[in-house]
Amino acid sequence: MADLPKVKVGIVSCSGEEIPEGTISRIATMKVLNKLRPQQTSTICLPLFLAGGKEDREFARVYPTITVDGCGKFCAKKATEKYSGKVSASINVRDFVKEGETLVNRRDLGQKELEVADRVAQEIATQVDEIVRQRSESIAFSQEEDVSSDEVSNASGTGCSCGSGEIPYLEIYFDGKKVKLFYLKEIFDFVSQDGSKSDDDIAERILSLVRTYNVIDEGMENAYRDAIVKEYHAYLGGGK
């Protein structure tokens, strides 16, 4: 049976050395990564990302990301959009500070700061759940299944053993240019297992899965749909 990789969400935290909100952002991110959603998240190291970290940038290109910023300068969000692509959710720690509250500690967080960190962590976890839910809807995969079971671990393998080390992709021609779509072959194999369905159904299913692993600009879906369905039929006919 064809498998698709499990959806993981990358969390990019600002480091904000100058302000307590930067430390809060870090603490909240680590709480999500280690305690609240360890299976569904991965962290992206912002300084490494900015310094050219290839693996982090590619991960953020393929998988959905949530950025957590400490202030209105939105460094984590800007960096992710500059080097990888649109973010799925953007959180500003300052939105979780109660009116009139002043945060003071940027080194060892006090009670006030820790409470803010908890609120931010909960919000990140909520956003993770929503992203995973939306993107996994078309994959017959329940996030509540016991991940130690053989069936789930086979179906959710996140590794690619294609031998190249690259995330697998196919190129399609779209709007006069070549576009790289990650996991497209795997999606085609997966959908072809459904048995005969109308072209409309097939298109919806494929597009939904493509959106899971690729960023499709708003308003472009119909145009992508036609190109992808054409590729799908060519693929089934042995065109690729």
């Binding site: 600002c14 480091s15 904000g16 100058e18 930067g22 300084p47 310094a51 460094c75």
Partner: peptide, 21 residues
């Protein structure tokens, strides 16, 4: 910057710097 050399040493957000602030 807070304990040993306040007023003489400081820090700056690395990300802010790298993004051209």
């Amino acid at each position: 910057i807070e304990n040993l050399k306040p007023g003489k040493a400081d820090t700056v957000c690395l990300a802010l710097l790298t993004l051209g602030d």
